[in-house]
Amino acid sequence: MSQDLDTSPPPEPPTNRPLPPGDRLGTFLARPYVKHIAAIWVVCTLIWVPIAYWLAGNMGAGPAASKLMGALKETVFVFTLVSAPLMGFVLAVILYSWLGWGRVSGDEVPDLKNPAIKGNPIAVTIWTIVVSFLAFFLVTWGIVEYTVVNNYAAGSDNPEKLQPLEVHVTGQQWLWSFSYPEQGGISSETLFLPHNRPVVFKATSKDVIHNFWIVPMGVKIDVNPGAVTLAGVTPDTLGSFPIRCAELCGMHHAFMQTQAVVLDKADWNSWLASMGVTS
């Protein structure tokens, strides 16, 4: 039995005092499989770093078009990295169990002489604390970030503290229409938005549930018949961004798409003028 044990410190004279906890940890860490698993663990954890970059970088197929979307990307990035060690550990153990501790095949029931480990209060306690701490972190991050995102949606991130622009979003099978009550109620099937000015969307539907999703801005809200739902964003990138319907709404759900075009001040004014609005 002694060849199974590879305690590096020399045996001490017998005593009826328990080993000090530090020594127990030392003997545990000195076991070869612990070293191996630790090494695999590090690798399995590091795998998640590029994945986290890839996930956050490609959310919405490109760079964030608003600070709100930036916050969403940050959340995904942080969550992946924070849970990576735990996932890496589980991955390392199943890999080592598969390949490392030995294997037997064949039809006969083998006598593997595996150690009958029944419970280990220390392991269960440490695991529970780590997982609870992780869950606590995720919850806290979620609460804080959700508040931040709500503030962004309310227009807190615009540099000049402008009044939000109100846009009424109407979904119907299978097209979007947008009207601008402050601009004399002009309406359009492409969403035009001014740069760096907060926008409040008041969304409703004429028939069934749709979901209004400006992908790279992180705006997503159900568009319900018989109710008005609110969303908001401050677009901070010029350009044209896809709007998709993200709730199954019937036959042509897949084609219920349009564009959100963010215009700078001059273009915005000339668009308004082309729609017959004098500012």
Binding site: Y33, W101, L112, A123, V131, A135, I143
Partner: peptide
């Protein structure tokens, strides 16, 4: 959000039992 993330705790306990059972075991 809080209640949903809480579920990860009992679920992870089951994962612990799984990897704990694998721990130091030759496998058939």
């Amino acid at each position: 959000m809080i209640s949903t993330e809480m579920i990860s705790i009992p679920l992870s306990l089951i994962v612990l039992v799984m990897i704990g059972t694998m721990w130091r075991g030759k496998v058939w």
